[in-house]
């Protein structure tokens, strides 16, 4: 059985291929070759420049780090192999960090992909589902609670970007108005990105706190997350970390759980 619109499909397939190729597609009105090229170039330029612009908007720090010309080159290579999969262009670029990691001319900048992950996470946080953070005063109501029963719900916009490189520091030093400085002792960093209210926050977490938040994203039990964080950093202070998470607006609910499997203690 043939598709109902097979001829149109084939024509559009050729047109779409030509948008990323060298010559105009067959089937245009009988223009002289140089006229056909000039006319078709409007579409080719619209597609390439609008998609490159979308990537520039999403990844301004990457553009600053590699320079405009290099960025346009890598973006052009990316859009050809990874055009958007959806008309919702604000979501475009999720594959760009991995593409940068594998892009041969960018191999001298091993941190680039993680900086791009921070930038993409900021876009995701911006458009994520809304949720009202609990007010800082809410913690007082749980001061007497058994830590083993306390459950923490994190804001749906929260993202973590763990890097073997100082990706967060590089991102921060390349904000508009900031002056990049030499990083003398590069350390791994974990960036936290969230949008508790209208603005996106981006900060770096110490190893214990990063493990704590990462654990809470998998499992809301405070005590288990604290244990995971201790294992990572013996100096981890769970009360401080929780207070900071609440004051940043990262917590949307504090609850007492009666589901005590694998936990000691009983609640009435």
């Amino acid at each position: 059985m043939s598709m109902p619109h097979e001829d149109t499909h084939d024509g559009q397939a050729a047109f779409a291929r030509a948008l990323f190729g060298e010559t105009p597609p067959a089937g245009l009105a009988p223009y002289p070759p140089e006229i056909a090229r000039a006319r078709f170039a409007i579409y080719r330029n619209n597609v390439a420049s609008s998609l490159i612009k979308a990537l520039e908007t999403r990844f301004p720090v990457i553009e600053r780090l590699v320079g405009e010309a290099f960025f346009k080159g890598v973006a052009h290579a990316f859009i050809k192999g990874h055009p958007p999969r959806s008309p919702v262009l604000m979501e475009y670029g999720d594959a760009f960090p991995d593409f940068l990691a594998a892009f041969p001319p960018a191999q001298s900048l091993p941190y680039l992909a993680d900086v791009a992950r921070i930038e993409y996470a900021r876009g995701e946080a911006y458009r994520a589902e809304d949720a009202e953070p609990v007010p800082p005063a809410a913690l007082a109501g749980f001061a007497e609670a058994d830590p083993d029963t306390l459950c923490i719900s994190l804001h749906p916009s929260l993202r973590l970007v763990a890097s073997d490189h100082p990706a967060f520091s590089i991102w921060r030093m390349n904000q508009p108005g900031a002056t990049p400085q030499r990083i003398t002792a590069p350390q791994p960093e974990t960036a936290l990105v969230a949008r508790p209210h209208d603005g996106v926050i981006t900060l770096s977490l110490p190893a214990g706190e990063a493990a704590f938040i990462a654990a809470l994203r998998q499992d809301p039990h405070f005590a288990r997350a604290a244990e995971t964080a201790f294992a990572r950093d013996p100096a981890f202070e769970p009360g401080y970390a929780l207070g900071r998470a609440v004051s940043l607006g990262l917590v949307t609910a504090l609850d007492i759980s009666h589901d005590n499997e694998a936990l000691s203690g009983d609640q009435p």
Partner: peptide
């Protein structure tokens, strides 16, 4: 759009 690609222009 063509197949799975969104081309971001009015073609």
């Amino acid at each position: 759009s063509h197949d799975t690609a969104f081309l971001n222009d009015l073609l």
